[in-house]
Design a binder for these strands. Sequence first.
DNA 1: TGGTTATACGGTATTGATACCGTATATGAT
DNA 2: ATCATATACGGTATCAATACCGTATAACCA
Lengths: 186, 186
Amino acid sequence: MDDLTEKMAQAFDAAPIGIAVSHHRVLSMCNTSFAKMLGYDRPDLLGQSFRILYPTHAEFDRVRDIGLKAMEEHGSYSDERMMRRKDGVPVWCRFRARTLTPADPLAHLVMSFAPIRDQLDGAQLTKREREVLSGLSRGLTSKEIGRELGLSPRTIEDVRARLLRKFEVKNTSELLSRMSYARPAN
Amino acid sequence: MDDLTEKMAQAFDAAPIGIAVSHHRVLSMCNTSFAKMLGYDRPDLLGQSFRILYPTHAEFDRVRDIGLKAMEEHGSYSDERMMRRKDGVPVWCRFRARTLTPADPLAHLVMSFAPIRDQLDGAQLTKREREVLSGLSRGLTSKEIGRELGLSPRTIEDVRARLLRKFEVKNTSELLSRMSYARPAN
DNA sequence: TGGTTATACGGTATTGATACCGTATATGAT
DNA sequence: ATCATATACGGTATCAATACCGTATAACCA
């Protein structure tokens, strides 16, 4: 094997950001940063379903279809999401994905994960707050988020109001300018 | 060479985030995302000084000492910085670095670079668009931004509408979720 | 020279966001 | 046990955002 490949493999493993490869939501490769970020050793993770890295099965199901359309069109997608560490502590991450198979995005995915807040901050957000935040960052209205979560739009407004209070911001725009991030260029 | 190394090298290159390795500020390895982000092909970059990737020599000097102390203590460092694309266009990045040689951090660095703003196919934001974006990210209304810039609120709405069209987003929330850290106008 | 875009401003109409009022249940902490 | 908080939902009122209609000027580019 050539020196170039060796160097790339070393850079992969030493990267200051978590990187993982999946095939149909099963992890086939990851670097040390990724494993450590989630409290595992790499051998524990290889071959595992991504299910164990999400807080709940519902969350695992929910995120599956998010971004599928963007990946079919642009080959890439990003958002922010909560991952679950081995000890159960939630980790709030900037997530970026690129598919190598745009026709069937989940068939071969390469992802990067960067923790954006310490665990304490992340843990302070409730499940509902994360779900609503996810919708807001995708530009959905209260009505649309309510439909997605099977709740009254009125309840979404309550949750959003709580988020605004917690982060001491004036409105949703200011909230998202603090919580969100950009899609990777390709 | 074993299959594991091969897989790691593939993941490195397909990662949705720029990754680079340097020895004393000379780039020894990078992935395709990194090269493309800055408008190069990888072979153009290998062996080059990082100098060419910064807007000015002064900026190149300035960032050298930034984070050195943090890396000596923790082995890693992160900030936001401006990189310079081959065509001269500045690119704002979330920068993360890990040193493999804490005693002399710059001796062996592994870095990740994530653009924090969409590239819009090379097109750039106008001065007005940046000014308005800055106001929006601070949660100001059109009326408030208009007052700040000495313009009619109506004009602010025009600029905002243009931003929404350019980035193909539904509303200001989705816009800001992609733009994070809007920079004040220059 | 005409076409495109950015800028700047006016109007109107509809929808969404935000802030209040209220009730109710469940949970967890002091 | 009481208090605080999260959840969930109803109403109303007001303001902002968004999408249209229009005009006008200036810059740049083929």
